Computed example of a mutant assay.
Amino acid sequence: MDAFYSTSSSSSGPYGATAYGGSGWGYDSLKNFRQITPAVQTHLKLVYLTLCVALASSAVGAYLHVVWNIGGMLTTLGCVGSIAWLFSVPVYEERKRYGLLMAAALLEGASVGPLIKLAVEFDPSILVTAFVGTAIAFACFSCAAVVAKRREYLYLGGLLSSGLSILLWLQFAASIFGHSTSSFMFEVYFGLLIFLGYMVYDTQEIIERAHHGDMDYIKHALTLFTDFVAVLVRILVIMLKNASDKSEDKKRKKRS
């Protein structure tokens, strides 16, 4: 455990100060992957490629809901079941696990379908903007985690876990006592902040696990897929709420 959390010796090496130090940060640091071995780089390429395919599968699921209205409790349970099944399948059964990941992504897209359908009916540009914004945020936070010193952001794990616990308790309390619009939006913004943090933390954890021999790219892609969808849903909710408020204000001005 001490070795896991100890400071990487490369940070104090001949290129540590240049690549990661305050005044030496620049374009060269973005190209500096010397702390990441070629094997880990190949693993990350597989992870992100699998993530892209999972997102495409999720988009198909959302489209199926828009067309046939299939999303709901059954697809949510199916998604959870597919993920549980994936974790129970041995790592060497790669094709089966890959298929289960795609099935889980498709069912997740169908489960989020009602929100996406609402956005399409209200203003399709909101969906496009939310997706592009999520993709940019994901790329930026992932790059920050890759470029940063090894283990630099792993300390966030405890804070993020605590924040996630608070979020779950808030949702549990709201399900019992109900909540106002302001409390709901607080949960949305708070959840957005937490999952943006998880983008950084999970990326560095994946890199560290890969350095220690864990090359399960399917499981790692699932982790990042969960973060991506969680951020996308919350950005979509925020944008829909803001657009709805603006629409209401316009109607009030016209009436007055």
Rank of each mutant, 00 (worst) to 15 (best):
G78Y: 05
L236Y: 08
L115K: 08
F225R: 00
L101D: 02
F122Q: 11
S180Q: 05
A56N: 06
E152R: 09
V231M: 12
S247Q: 10
F33A: 12
A56I: 13
G99V: 02
Y198F: 14
F4E: 00
H212A: 13
G113M: 01
H43T: 01
S12T: 11
Q41P: 00
G213M: 00
G81N: 08
R95V: 07
M239R: 14
V128W: 01
L170A: 11
L222F: 08
P38N: 11
I166A: 11
T134V: 03
L127N: 01
E187N: 15
A62C: 08
T129N: 06
A144M: 10
Y198I: 00
L115V: 06
V66G: 08
D214F: 01
H220P: 03
H211L: 11
F33T: 12
T18P: 01
L193F: 11
H43R: 02
S10R: 15
K219S: 12
Y5N: 10
T129K: 09
K149L: 04
D28R: 09
L192I: 03
E248W: 07
S58Y: 04
S9Q: 11
V47E: 05
K45I: 12
I136T: 09
E108A: 13
V147M: 05
R150W: 02
N32D: 15
N69R: 15
A230Q: 12
S57T: 13
V231L: 09
W68Y: 15
E208I: 05
I235D: 01
A103V: 13
Y201C: 06
G61N: 05
R151G: 01
Y153K: 07
R234D: 03
S125Y: 09
L30D: 04
S82D: 05
I176L: 11
L236G: 04
H211A: 10
G81M: 06
L64M: 13
I207Q: 06
A145I: 05
D214R: 02
S247R: 13
S57Y: 13
S180M: 03
R95D: 03
T50M: 13
A39W: 00
V146F: 09
